[in-house]
Design a protein around this nucleic acid. Structure first.
Lengths: 362, 362
DNA sequence: TTGTAAGCGTTATCAC
DNA sequence: GTGATAACGCTTACAA
């Protein structure tokens, strides 16, 4: 209702009885000014409650001092933590964060990038469905906009802050194999829209193959099943042979345990479960979750630091992947004796309602 | 390195062989233009890969089409979800979100507000340590900037999207009392910097008093203890009488169970635990968490909708609190028979290392 | 139908 | 030391 007009530097100058250039110099300490004028300007600014318009500055300076960040969702704590890391790395740099999220939608990704570009961000930090295929992203890069990726495994000309998903997943397979598991499964949400999930599956499968184990069963969930252990349970009734399951993230790993419980299977006696990400809460569970511990916070920090370097015109090189750790937990154990080495045929039903399940061929 | 110059509407106009006003009209469909010129302008824009500068527009139009959002932290899923809700409510409105976080620091809160104002956001959605005391916030409001609060219980002239913390907490006390618990405790992180925690404690205590129960023991944790069940366990060794514990959020509720386990206490036989917030994961635990279920997502949506209405100049009225629900879980049960009605003296040690513990007087 | 020009808030340049 | 003034990218009178 009472939107009072904005106080601009003009108002300050008028009140101080000087030119706007002088006011600007005083307020920015960017040039000479007599003590007297300086005092007048400062008290005028104070009295008026003046503060600079970042927009005016940006327009004139060519830099908005804003960097854009696109993540699939903030509801996923992994991304939320990464963004938090970005914020931290940026704090003190003078840059502000403009955040967008796409809800794992490739189209929305492109729109978001376009919007960020329109806002004249000075650089972007991005996790999206398919950066290598995004017209908006390559367009932005073509215009000279610094781009820093997060979570993605290395892609052609981009720099990325990442963890080596392939190798980390191999580690899980190694653990399973060492304990004597033969029949495994990989559980994923949005397999097709996440290069991370795909790389994890690839690594997992590669190591299984290297050890002469059958290919892991690939189970791709829809959004629905992930939140409904009952639905999940339905589908697992079929996986009789499977004694070890690798979930592509910790939430799935926790949800699948609930599902197992519903079907009377106990973890880890009947089914070993390992997750991915290493979210804090996994540690606090009655059955602490075995998982690959990653550092999303550090990923955010690194992505931001890389971007800051690009903004300073430094040459930017792809850094090595951030470390991961296998976190031992209570959800991983040897398979029951009787279920070992029982390799007769795949207990694989032709179809499972409302689930897209596919077993990759070796 | 190769920061190609930006394509402005001037470039488009030049290439199309027309004035910039015409180009603007065509591209915005905001005025007449002959079919011929229209075509020329459009193909020129296309060829050049032109896109508008939101900044130029904002500067001229007086509105940045950006709204600012300040939350304590994105690492807390409750706030992350709320922000997600804000994003959703804003999508399609043409407004972008500029996000800041303060890490629960009152000073950072003020800085963040100031920065958002400098960015010329058209409105702000805020959760901060002390909105009623923030100079920056009242200043912003004084300048006519629409302000919409989230999570905070109603404060003088502000509108807020909230849940009735006091009443929700009373509900917890009621449940405890009905089951026969007499000695309770309230566990909080950052009690002093969160009006929500304070209101929850107040409601909890009020209902205990109304039922003739002793005041709940107030336990305020530092950041450290919350992540270290060992440390937590140390402090609980003292709370011999307490049979029921209300944690001011679900993470604490989960952490405290781990601590209880470490000391050989079993939940809920020896200790009932109820959380607050209703995070999804609580449902999936082996011992599903009893908690007050709130709707942070809806809170974000409502805060955003309210702000949009303010931006449209509509009168905005404080809406009633969003609903909460008591979610039954396996962490709440009757106290053991022998521990009931044993009211002899407070089992309260003079000091517990590294914890600020205080018992409020009735 | 079209183009010129003023103005949004700032800073940088350049005379004074 | 100081103050006009041009420029940044855009929209919108207003004039042609």
């Amino acid at each position: 209702m009472d939107a009072r007009q904005k106080i601009t530097i003009k108002d300050v100058a008028r009140r101080a009885g000087c030119g706007i250039a002088t006011a600007s110099r005083v307020l920015n300490r960017s040039g000479p000014a007599s003590a007297e004028v300086r005092a007048r300007v400062e008290s005028a600014a104070d009295a008026l409650g003046f503060s600079f318009s970042a927009m005016g500055r940006a327009l004139q300076g060519g830099r908005s001092m804003t960097i854009g960040c696109l993540v699939p969702s903030l509801a996923n704590p992994v991304f939320a933590e990464a963004v938090q890391g970005v914020q931290e790395a940026l704090s003190g740099s003078g840059y502000q964060l403009l955040i967008a999220s796409s809800n794992y939608d490739g189209e929305a990704d492109n729109d978001a990038i376009a919007t960020l570009v329109a806002k004249e961000v000075d650089g972007v930090i991005v996790t999206m469905v398919a950066p290598e295929k995004s017209a908006a992203l390559s367009d932005a890069r073509g215009r000279g906009l610094p781009v820093s990726l997060m979570f993605h495994d290395p892609i052609d000309g981009f720099v990325t802050a990442h963890v080596d998903n392939f190798t980390a997943a191999r580690e899980v397979a190694r653990r399973f194999a060492d304990l004597g598991h033969r029949h495994t499964a990989f559980l994923s949400l949005r397999f097709s829209s996440s290069d991370r999930s795909r790389n994890r599956y690839a690594g997992f499968r590669a190591e299984c193959a290297a050890r002469g184990l059958p290919d892991p069963v690939l189970i791709e969930l829809g959004e629905l099943e992930a939140d409904r252990p009952e639905l999940l349970a339905d589908s697992f009734a079929s996986l009789k042979d499977v004694t070890a399951l690798f979930a592509s993230n910790d939430f799935l790993a926790i949800a699948v345990q609930k599902a197992a419980r519903l079907m009377g299977k106990s973890v880890p006696q009947d089914l070993s479960v390992v997750g991915f990400d290493g979210i804090e809460i996994g540690r606090l569970l009655e059955l602490p979750l075995a998982t690959i511990e990653t550092a999303p916070h550090a990923m955010g920090r690194q992505a931001a630091q890389t971007l800051l370097e690009m903004l300073q015109g430094k040459a930017c090189v792809q850094r090595p992947p951030l470390p991961f750790d296998f976190r031992a937990g209570a959800t991983l154990a040897r398979p029951r004796a009787e279920s070992r080495d029982d390799d007769q045929g795949t207990a694989w039903p032709p179809s499972v309602p409302s689930l897209k399940i596919a077993q990759k061929q070796g």
